[in-house]
């Protein structure tokens, strides 16, 4: 939940309640604007994507992480650096697929869902779907097409929140000439 005010590398604390309530207001407004939950999920993903494609620049500039050599390294950076930097949590990485192209991020506590209780009429709403969009958008900007989706959610009664990440392919065609 840290966010820089100036462009330095130090992070500034902000109230987690303000952050959580702001996100809550966003989601409930979307629920009012769209008739069904599927549309809200889609919209959250789209917003997340737009955040992600911008956030990756900020992330690379401030974190000083180098190029990742494989997907495992990427997973480590996402969990230990990116989540720490922007949400103040460190999810654990588990359930690698044998091929090494899929893994799960386990969030013990998700700061987006403090206070939240899903009402019964929103059972198919994926409340934190924004995060999936952010991950997808950010990785796309570093030439990685991934799929991210929630498979467990504490809001739906699961013990933990789990985001499943799947590596699809490297994006080669939009590399600018002269790089790599």
């Amino acid at each position: 939940m840290s966010r820089q005010a100036n462009r330095g590398t130090e992070s500034k604390k902000m109230s987690s309640e303000l952050f959580t309530l702001t996100y809550g207001a966003l989601v409930t407004q979307l629920c009012k604007d769209y008739e069904n939950d599927e549309d809200v999920n889609k919209q959250l993903d789209k917003m997340g994507y737009n955040i992600g494609v911008r956030l990756i620049e900020d992330f690379l500039a401030r974190s000083n992480v180098g190029r990742c050599h494989d997907f495992r390294e990427t997973a480590d950076v996402i969990a230990k650096v990116a989540f720490k930097m922007y949400l103040g949590i460190t999810p654990s990485i588990t359930n690698w697929s044998p091929a090494g192209d899929e893994f799960s991020l386990i969030l013990e506590n998700n700061p987006l869902v403090d206070f939240v209780e899903l009402p019964d009429n929103h059972s198919s709403l994926i409340y934190s779907n924004l995060l999936c969009g952010v991950l997808r958008g950010a990785l796309e900007m570093v030439q990685m097409a991934v799929e991210a989706k929630f498979v467990q959610d504490t809001l739906k009664g699961d013990g933990v929140t789990e985001i499943r990440m799947r590596f699809i392919r490297r994006i080669e065609d939009n590399l600018p000439a002269g790089e790599e």
Partner: peptide
């Protein structure tokens, strides 16, 4: 207070929270 902070709860409504 936690109930009030739930974004799905409208202040003034009856409280229907499992927690």
């Amino acid at each position: 207070t936690d109930v009030m902070c739930n974004p799905f709860y409208n202040p003034g409504d009856r409280i229907q929270s499992r927690a």
